[in-house]
């Protein structure tokens, strides 16, 4: 059940320079857990000390922000595209 994770520029150095990773898991939490196990240096960038998501990190499963579809328990399936994006200031129109 591999999902493709797209890593933003700002986090690439912490995951061995990879722009994408292929990781198996049934939930976002399980997949991120495996990423952190392989690249321990990224843990502090992804999670707070209490295990919640870093407030300036947005994670999308197929372009849906996981915070609104179950958070770390959001389900993932084979072929899903997971995108990590830093929260940045929006623009002029909203």
């Amino acid at each position: 059940m591999a999902s493709i994770i797209r890593i933003p520029t700002v986090l690439r150095a912490a995951v061995g320079g990879n722009a994408t990773l292929s990781v198996e898991g049934a939930t976002i939490g399980e997949i991120l857990g495996k990423v952190v196990a392989e690249f321990p240096g990224v843990e502090a960038q992804v999670f707070n000390a209490d295990g919640s998501l870093h407030k300036f990190l947005n994670i999308y499963v197929n372009d849906d922000d996981v915070r609104y579809i179950g958070g770390l328990t959001a389900a993932t399936k084979d072929g899903d595209e997971i995108t990590l994006l830093p929260a940045v200031a929006g623009g002029a129109t909203a």
């Binding site: 933003p8 520029t9 700002v10 300036f56 994006l85 929260a87 940045v88 200031a89 623009g91």
Partner: peptide, 18 residues
Amino acid sequence: PPSGETVDGLRSLDDGYI
């Protein structure tokens, strides 16, 4: 928009903004 992808000047996630 996927704007976080194009902001190259971001040094770390702590430079983020809500």
